[in-house]
């Protein structure tokens, strides 16, 4: 069983514009936001939360490079060293003929590697159960959550009231 070690106070907003305003207010008041949950990606939110640009594409490039080298060097080794055979009068090292498979493996490695990385760093995967603050967050509510160790319950309550949250609640996760 998972341990409940955090007490979270959260407020739900009805619209992403209210959410953005509230996050700005929280930043101005120096309230440390635990997390923000939305039903779809809200544009303009990342800079407000100070989220750095994702480096997932760099990982993708590296995986792709590995795929490229695996395919190209692999075929080179097979057809020049391990088992050279002449096909259709072409040289052993037929670079143009290696390109399609090299390309495919580059793409395959990059996308599979990147997708796995995505799930792992997000802590998502088969059989994972993450705590859900409210059932409507994946529907139509936009949620700001505070950890009560960082922001006291009272402060949070008055913040939510001031910024027009439609529902405020506390949950242990």
């Amino acid at each position: 069983m998972r341990k409940f070690n955090k007490e979270i106070v959260f407020g739900l907003y009805d619209d992403e514009t209210d959410l953005l305003k509230a996050v700005k207010t929280a930043n101005a008041d120096h309230l440390d936001i635990y997390n923000v949950y939305t039903p779809f990606p809200v544009h303009g939110l990342d800079p407000l939360l100070g989220l750095e640009e994702s480096r997932l594409h760099i990982a993708g490039f590296i995986y792709g490079l590995i795929g490229f080298l695996t395919a190209f060097l692999g075929m080179t080794w097979v057809f020049t060293k391990d088992w050279p055979i002449i096909f259709g009068g072409k040289p052993y090292w037929s670079v143009p003929a290696f390109i399609p498979i090299t390309f495919e493996l580059t793409v395959l490695f990059a996308s599979v590697g990147m997708t796995i990385t995505f799930y792992v760093i997000n802590g998502l995967g088969f059989g994972v159960t993450n705590p859900i603050l409210h059932d409507r967050i994946t529907d139509d509510k936009f949620c700001i959550a505070f950890d009560t160790h960082e922001v006291s319950e009272g402060t949070a309550q008055s913040f939510f009231e001031a910024t027009g949250a439609s529902l405020v609640d506390i949950k242990n996760i």
Binding site: G88, G89, K90, P96, A97, I99
Partner: peptide
């Protein structure tokens, strides 16, 4: 470029 080159190279 590649498609044109490769096809002509391949079929010879």
């Amino acid at each position: 470029w590649f498609s044109q080159y490769m096809l002509i190279w391949y079929a010879n």
